[in-house]
Simulated scan of single mutants.
Amino acid sequence: MNLLAIGWEPELRGLLTVVISVVILCGSIYMIMATNMGSRLAFLVALTGLAGWMVLMGATWWIYGIGLRGPDPSWQPVPGATVLQDTEALRSGGALEQLPQVPDDATVVEEAQLVAQQFVDEGYIVLDPASPAFGQAQASASVYIEEQGAFGPGEYQIIEVFDIGGERFPLIAGREELDFLAFWHTPHYVVAEAAPIIQVRTEPGRAPVPPSVDDTRQRQYVYMIRDLGARRQPAVVLTLGGGAIFLALCYLLHRREQILRENLSTSKAVATA
């Protein structure tokens, strides 16, 4: 009982929990079968049942994407072109194929509008700020833009997110609802537009004033690519690996049964003679 009171080491406590669970659950079944069919055969049968259970559990996790899961999909930085701090960097970083024609006397707002129109002309989709996809891209862009020191916390605001790519293929009859064979994807990119905001001084006892965008400073862009993750990979490995072990153990049981029958038939023939 003293072992169960260990709480200062989470790793040791988790290890003891797994060991005790295996000994009690699997060990009790093995001991019951060993009294009827012998220790070696009982171990083989118990191990086969465990492998079969692993296949069923892994298949369930594989179908629903639950249980033992790998990394979830996330937005990752484009190497060498994550935070683009001017309009020229959009083309050199690969976000745009061509730059818009910006007049020399254009303001920062007018230049941002021309850049946004160029994104749309090249096939980008402007995400709705209320959509979950906008929120995910906004959260990831905030991390990268602060890590590289372009802006500090509370000094900027993500005002636009441009999305392109990510189509699945092959589709049956070109219909998106029939996509259960679409195992491949085109690269999926987003560009988040970050605008600096005017710092507002707060006064005690008064509600804070909502921040406003600073139209005199250059907009910056965060270029990211979608990593689809590997949520079902551990479940796939468990299902296939457990299935191979289960089939191998079933074959061993089958071979043992055949050898036993041959031995029994030989012993009966000798006894009759």
Rank of each mutant, 00 (worst) to 15 (best):
P103W: 13
W75N: 04
S265L: 10
T60C: 08
A130Q: 15
V23I: 15
V209G: 12
P187V: 01
A112I: 05
R226P: 01
R256F: 07
I24N: 03
K268G: 08
I63N: 01
W53S: 05
R13Y: 09
F169M: 06
L56T: 03
I125S: 12
A141Y: 00
N36W: 07
V102S: 03
I159L: 05
G152H: 13
V120P: 08
A150Q: 14
S140L: 14
G93L: 03
G149C: 05
A46K: 02
S140I: 01
T82D: 02
G70C: 04
R13H: 14
I198S: 12
H254G: 10
T272N: 14
V109C: 06
E167I: 10
A112M: 00
M1L: 15
G58M: 06
E88N: 09
P79V: 06
L56I: 05
R175W: 04
D227R: 04
G67W: 01
K268Q: 14
Q117T: 13
G149D: 09
A81T: 08
G49P: 01
E176D: 10
V161H: 00
T35Y: 07
E176C: 08
N36Y: 11
G58C: 05
M33C: 09
Q113T: 14
L240G: 03
D214N: 03
R201K: 13
V209L: 15
D86A: 10
Y223M: 02
E177Y: 08
D227T: 04
V209E: 15
P208E: 03
Q157M: 10
T60D: 10
I259W: 02
E146I: 11
Y223L: 02
Q136M: 13
T82F: 02
S28A: 06
R261V: 05
L228Y: 15
L264S: 08
T272S: 11
G38T: 11
R219E: 10
Q138G: 03
H185I: 11
Y144M: 07
T87H: 06
T239V: 02
G154W: 04
S267C: 05
F162W: 08
D128H: 14
W62P: 00
A34S: 15
E122H: 13
Q113K: 15
A133G: 07
Q233M: 12
E110G: 05
A273H: 07
M224F: 06
W61K: 03
